[in-house]
Design a protein around this nucleic acid. Structure first.
Lengths: 147, 147
DNA sequence: TATTGTTATACTCTATAACTATA
DNA sequence: TATAGTTATAGAGTATAACAATA
């Protein structure tokens, strides 16, 4: 009723299936989408975080990408060199540089999000009943906070 | 019945939830597990592929890691320097080097797999009914047939 | 004093091309 | 000729530490 009940639960198999899905199939699909647009993962992530009309500081982008601020310099350098983004001095605090999408950046972002949003065939080919059930359960999974 | 039915399907929301789960939460968790053991992602992947008692050639490891063979030299160099793996000349074909786990490598691998297999709280705290349903659907997604 | 962004440095992963030693 | 593994090279991401400008 304690240990046996724990081990007879399908949690481990679920986790195994999710890991395999995440780390190979989903990742491969995403990598293809991203490199197709000439982006790296961090660049694509940055493009997703940088919403049109909502410029953010370098520091905020570092937080969004969960990496050290020193990395952001290089990542933004390369995106700026490709004309996707611009550094703009902040008049309120002259230490800060705000990041703004260029027109090309906004277009690239739109294409990226559009392609990323397209669900793969494995999901589309589930029955509607399965889809509804899966969606409801995943919402519950996402609602549980860490730790 | 065609376009409206398509768009009213929860496939897009499922995909959105799965992406967010895969690319942030699952990845963060895995990164933590792996770096805790002093490994990088490719090293951990290699450790998983290298089964005890089943030595494989460098080339086979490259295939397993889906990367160019030239990378494997460096990855194995670092694992060998840490005493996790050994290069052994193949007597049948002297071009080939077989990779064998050391004792420390086998122990490291066991710890890694053990920790990776532990499902996170988000899954464990689902109801048993949800777990069974989710497991069944994920099997279908993965193409694994019912047992 | 603290913070923002940058630089310097070092390490790992990634790929391509050229090389060696075998086959 | 072809293959297995390596080396050389280059580029990108990652972190830490130190720095200048600004708050």
């Amino acid at each position: 009723m304690t240990v046996r009940a724990e081990t007879s639960t399908p949690a481990r198999e679920i986790w195994e299936l999710l890991l395999e899905l995440s780390m190979s199939r989903i990742r491969q699909r995403l990598l293809h989408t991203v490199t197709d647009l000439g982006l790296s993962f961090p660049q694509a992530h940055a493009l997703k975080v940088l919403r049109p009309g909502h410029p953010i500081a370098m520091r905020e982008l570092a937080d969004g990408l969960h990496c050290d601020p020193s990395n952001i310099t290089g990542i933004v350098d390369r995106m700026e060199a490709r004309g996707l983004v611009e550094r703009v001095a902040d008049r309120a605090d002259r230490r800060v540089k705000k990041l703004m999408l260029t027109r090309a950046g906004r277009e690239h972002r739109a294409r990226l999000l559009e392609r990323m949003a397209e669900p793969p065939v494995q999901i589309r080919s589930l029955s509607v009943a399965d889809q509804r059930a899966l969606c409801a359960i995943l919402r519950r999974v996402s609602g549980v906070r860490e730790r």
